[in-house]
Design a protein around this nucleic acid. Sequence first.
DNA 1: CCCAAATGAGATAAAATAGTCTCAAAAGAG
DNA 2: CTCTTTTGAGACTATTTTATCTCATTTGGG
Lengths: 190, 190
Amino acid sequence: MHDTDTSLKDARRIELLNMASELLATKPTASLAEIAEYAGIGKATLHRYFASREALILALGYRALALVTQAISASQPEQGSATEALKRIIEALVPLGDKLYFLLREPLLETHADFVAAESASQLPILALIQRGQASGEFKHDLSAEWIVHYLDYALFATWQSLYDGNLARRDAARVLITTLFGGIVTSPS
Amino acid sequence: MHDTDTSLKDARRIELLNMASELLATKPTASLAEIAEYAGIGKATLHRYFASREALILALGYRALALVTQAISASQPEQGSATEALKRIIEALVPLGDKLYFLLREPLLETHADFVAAESASQLPILALIQRGQASGEFKHDLSAEWIVHYLDYALFATWQSLYDGNLARRDAARVLITTLFGGIVTSPS
DNA sequence: CCCAAATGAGATAAAATAGTCTCAAAAGAG
DNA sequence: CTCTTTTGAGACTATTTTATCTCATTTGGG
């Protein structure tokens, strides 16, 4: 068993996760047979990579959290103003919709305390960033930082869904989200 | 068969819908047996009121749309400024979370073209209101009215979920949502 | 080219759930 | 109080989906 062996299996595993999250985003109740067919493999092979549906979903969930964590840290949340840092994070997260959107509608994950805890932990950097922005006066302080983080999550889901539905162009998505989230829908009293 | 007979059956049917939407909000995959138990009735009786799971879910969906339509029209969306009208609508919709939140996670409804069309139709008054607000200069015109309506939906879901999780008090919910949605998270440059 | 490992297709359990049916008990109208 | 209707509990069937297993075929390393 060489390095390339594990690399190939890992790569295929990742590709399976990509296909699965893609399908589950549009059809949360897809059966394993449908997932296998969508990924172009046999269901037996799917089972060789993921012992059960639960194992697949959990792998998808943790992979999603890892992607979020990586996107956040790559955006250097502690660099520059909180506003600019949050913009960078949003621009990094919006393109990940294919791999994250299924989280909204997958009931299995919230029954796993470990996963829920990991999910909260993955958002801590954003929470810290919001608090930093509140302390610097950039973000509103009459809204709790926890609420803002939660609201941001849903604003991202709204964006991803608009992308799926074709009501938002990829190149516009992050900008539209940032405009709406940052400044709201009411015209500024300028 | 007197009027009271149908009234009583109707009342019970509505109570069943209430219990079902309440349970499905927290457990979207609840079986019919679980729903019946949660409502305190036998599963045979549940089947007497709703022939199938699909019939139950559709009844829930259409009831939800009716509640939205009613809440909107009771808020008189064409009275006063668009901003004030939208505030009234949001204040009317926030308390309906128990009966509407399940919509976000119910996969069955989006497969029914009729329902999807009815859902769009139920939001037309809000769309018109947003457009009115854009024309009057109250709402941003560099965001599409469709996007704002869609974003509002998700902001409502975010609020309802915070209420379920106990992270938002009932009396604060509408105010917090309105603040965040209308003015965003960034401090106004006053 | 050869061979071990991985794969795909499908048969076959095993499990969960939707939906039906029966019957005794409860509820409600008059 | 009596009779009709509705209900609840549970047995039972049908259906769907997960999970296992077999075996011929394919793939890729050496």
